[in-house]
Computed example of a mutant assay.
Amino acid sequence: MSKRQQCLLNRDRTMKRSRLVPKKHLYLVLDDWDEGFSIHKIDLDTLQDTATDLQVGFPEPAVLRLGAAELSLAAFGSNIFIATNPRCGQTPALVYNTETGGLTMGPRLPAPLLGCFDISVAAGDMLYGLSSYHLNVKRQHSFEVLSPAPTADKQPWSTRSSMNWSWKSVASPPPLNEDEIITSYVLHPDGQTIVMSVHDRDDPCLAKGTYFFDTKHCEWRWHGEWVLPFQGQGFFDSGLDAWVGLHEDGYICTCQVASRSRSSTSTTQPEWKMSKDKLFCSESERHLGATLTYMGDTRFGLVDCVVREELEPECAFGDRDGCVLRLIMFGLNYSQRGELQTKIYRTTSYLVSKYLVSFAPVAFWM
């Protein structure tokens, strides 16, 4: 085979792979207009490093705008599930497909999740949703699972396929007390075990311990009086062979994966490390929230929102571009001394408007 023929063959194979694997983008959900929320689709290949300059708004218009007073969000496969009125059981959810750009009606939130749907984990072909705390002290923790199935009653004259999404209660609810709150969670690399750490609800500094939930056998197991070192959702990275998450002080941290073995229950926390570089200042009143997302191959994206330096925090809200949204793309590795290092590839900053103090930017890599 000639070099030209080999080149054409390689190019054809590359094109076939690119058609089979859709290009991923960063999806940002912001409260950046007076009547609701926007979903922005960011192509990382088009981003410029603007660490010292600010861009006003985004180069492309939002792919979706939602008129709503509040949102609950979850990502599942190529879909973003959106509950625009998470306190009302009569309002159906919306399902935005990031591959097709289509918006469809989804199932409404089940009664146990109304007003308290703040944790979601995709495991296998299902999405598990629960609350981080007891909304009602007389009721157990809400724990529901969303599963898809092809619509059974497809009309004979229609060529369109559709899915029937349905919620059902997990048979084994979290064995948590009313004074315990879930502070961090991550999916085990086995793809079927959800790991959750809990603290005392009244004293967040008081760690209680960690539970494992086996989605395949629907059973919980106490794993010991240790907790994950990060806050909120963590991600498993195979290159580091560790869980990765945001430390509450603004650093990135990695945690050794705990064994699923029943004999491994321990009071000793798995080994963990914190990055030398601080990526955001969580202690400042000007800080309005940060979200970490995993982009594969030890690459991460941090979305951070702060009040503009020229404004006081109480004057930053409304239609006045009062906040700065930073997108920090970085990688992680260990030095020869075993120290956790961040390698920042790009920092892009935008001037944005913000309307809700309680809503932090949400980021999905899909």
Rank of each mutant, 00 (worst) to 15 (best):
A123S: 13
A123D: 02
G124Y: 01
G124N: 03
G124T: 04
D125Q: 12
D125W: 00
D125A: 15
D125E: 14
D125S: 15
M126R: 15
L127A: 04
Y128P: 06
Y128F: 15
Y128W: 07
Y128G: 10
G129R: 02
G129S: 13
S131L: 05
S131V: 03
S131K: 02
S132D: 06
S132Y: 01
S132I: 01
S132F: 02
S132P: 02
S132K: 05
S132A: 13
S132T: 03
Y133N: 02
Y133A: 13
Y133M: 07
H134M: 04
L135W: 00
L135P: 00
N136M: 05
K138H: 08
K138L: 12
K138T: 07
K138S: 11
R139G: 01
Q140S: 12
Q140Y: 00
Q140D: 12
H141N: 08
H141D: 01
S142C: 14
F143K: 03
F143W: 09
E144N: 05
V145A: 11
V145R: 07
V145F: 00
L146Q: 01
L146K: 01
L146E: 01
L146I: 06
S147F: 09
P148N: 03
P148W: 01
P148D: 04
A149S: 14
A149F: 02
P150R: 07
P150L: 11
P150E: 07
T151W: 00
T151C: 08
A152G: 01
A152F: 01
D153A: 14
D153Q: 09
D153R: 08
Q155K: 11
Q155L: 13
P156R: 04
P156M: 04
P156K: 03
P156D: 07
W157V: 07
W157A: 09
W157M: 05
W157D: 10
W157P: 01
S158Y: 00
S158R: 05
R160L: 13
R160Y: 02
R160G: 08
R160D: 10
S161G: 12
S161I: 03
S162M: 08
S162R: 08
S162H: 05
M163L: 15
M163Y: 06
M163A: 09
N164T: 15
N164D: 15
N164A: 15
N164Y: 06
W165H: 11
S166M: 12
W167N: 12
K168C: 13
K168V: 08
K168G: 05
K168H: 14
K168I: 04
S169E: 12
S169W: 00
S169T: 15
S169Y: 00
S169D: 04
V170E: 03
V170I: 09
A171G: 14
A171P: 00
S172V: 08
S172M: 10
S172W: 00
P173Q: 06
P173M: 09
P174L: 15
P175S: 09
L176R: 05
L176C: 13
L176Y: 10
L176V: 06
L176F: 14
N177H: 09
D179R: 09
D179C: 10
D179F: 14
D179N: 14
E180Q: 15
E180M: 14
E180R: 10
E180F: 08
E180T: 09
I181K: 13
I182M: 15
I182L: 13
I182N: 08
T183E: 14
T183I: 11
T183F: 07
T183H: 12
T183Q: 12
S184E: 04
S184C: 12
Y185R: 11
Y185N: 14
Y185K: 11
V186A: 15
